Simulated scan of single mutants.
Amino acid sequence: MIYAFDTYYYDDYANTICIAFKDWNSEQETEIFTEKTPITSDYESGAFYKRELPCILSLLNKINLESNDIIIVDGYVTLNDEGKIGLGGYLYEALEQKYPIVGIAKNGFASPDAQRREIFRGESKTPLFLTAKGADVDEIKPKVEQMDGDFRIPTLLKKLDQLTRL
């Protein structure tokens, strides 16, 4: 199973959603998990994970992961060649490196990262940015390219983003 997570922040709470789907080319989710949590940390530039990681970990408590499951985050797993990690890297560590974490980010990051791949979907000239830990980015890249949907953002990831804002 693949579990994709995203969080949207309101004034006094965070809305975290997880969409579960069977495989990379699924057209529909198999299940949706949702949780509203108090915001435990202000936004801190360069430390986004401090705000979002507790939300993801809390929602993960409602999900029974199996050894072959994959987790997708809206953001980066690795940030540069010197080993700096993003939200997904911190999640990978928090889960004791038991599950592959795939980061699919919409915005570029300036530091060079040999593990980052650009993905162009549909007719978009703007890439998505792929990073991962516990999985080979070069094996994941064609899977993300072939996810359902004709546009830059795959259908299920767009739905995930929309659900966080409801």
Score class of each variant (00 low, 15 high):
123 E>T: 11
29 E>P: 04
52 E>P: 01
40 T>H: 13
33 F>S: 06
161 D>G: 10
164 T>F: 07
141 K>M: 11
122 G>K: 08
128 L>K: 00
102 V>Y: 03
47 A>K: 13
74 D>W: 08
78 T>W: 05
48 F>N: 04
105 A>H: 00
37 T>D: 10
118 E>I: 03
75 G>L: 07
74 D>S: 09
123 E>N: 13
65 L>C: 07
43 Y>C: 06
92 Y>S: 06
41 S>C: 15
44 E>V: 15
17 I>Y: 01
59 L>E: 06
62 K>G: 10
147 M>N: 02
39 I>A: 06
55 C>N: 09
148 D>H: 14
93 E>F: 13
149 G>T: 03
98 K>C: 12
106 K>C: 01
96 E>H: 15
130 L>A: 02
38 P>T: 11
85 I>H: 02
11 D>S: 14
141 K>F: 07
58 S>W: 06
162 Q>K: 10
104 I>E: 02
57 L>H: 09
21 F>Q: 07
74 D>P: 08
69 D>Y: 08
37 T>N: 11
16 T>E: 03
75 G>S: 12
132 A>P: 01
109 F>V: 06
129 F>L: 07
84 K>M: 14
130 L>C: 10
108 G>S: 09
11 D>K: 15
57 L>N: 12
165 R>C: 12
103 G>C: 05
15 N>K: 14
111 S>H: 06
161 D>A: 09
40 T>A: 13
4 A>H: 09
59 L>M: 09
23 D>V: 07
7 T>R: 00
60 L>E: 00
100 P>W: 05
72 I>F: 13
44 E>K: 11
89 G>H: 03
60 L>G: 03
22 K>S: 13
150 D>V: 12
101 I>S: 03
46 G>P: 06
118 E>W: 02
3 Y>C: 07
32 I>P: 06
124 S>R: 04
164 T>C: 11
1 M>K: 11
110 A>Q: 08
81 D>N: 15
62 K>V: 10
166 L>D: 09
114 A>C: 11
62 K>E: 14
27 E>W: 08
55 C>L: 05
105 A>Y: 01
65 L>A: 07
15 N>E: 11
33 F>N: 08
25 N>R: 10
122 G>R: 05
85 I>P: 02
110 A>Y: 08
26 S>F: 08
73 V>F: 00
32 I>M: 11
34 T>F: 12
52 E>N: 05
17 I>V: 15
109 F>R: 00
94 A>C: 11
61 N>V: 11
4 A>D: 08
53 L>E: 00
9 Y>F: 15
157 L>Q: 03
124 S>C: 05
48 F>A: 01
20 A>Y: 10
142 P>T: 08
20 A>M: 15
115 Q>L: 13
77 V>C: 07
61 N>R: 13
43 Y>Q: 10
108 G>I: 03
135 A>I: 12
61 N>Q: 15
54 P>V: 09
95 L>S: 04
118 E>F: 03
120 F>L: 07
30 T>E: 14
25 N>V: 13
3 Y>W: 11
9 Y>D: 09
115 Q>S: 14
81 D>Y: 10
104 I>R: 00
148 D>L: 10
69 D>Q: 09
115 Q>Y: 10
89 G>R: 00
36 K>R: 15
142 P>H: 07
99 Y>G: 04
101 I>P: 00
141 K>E: 13
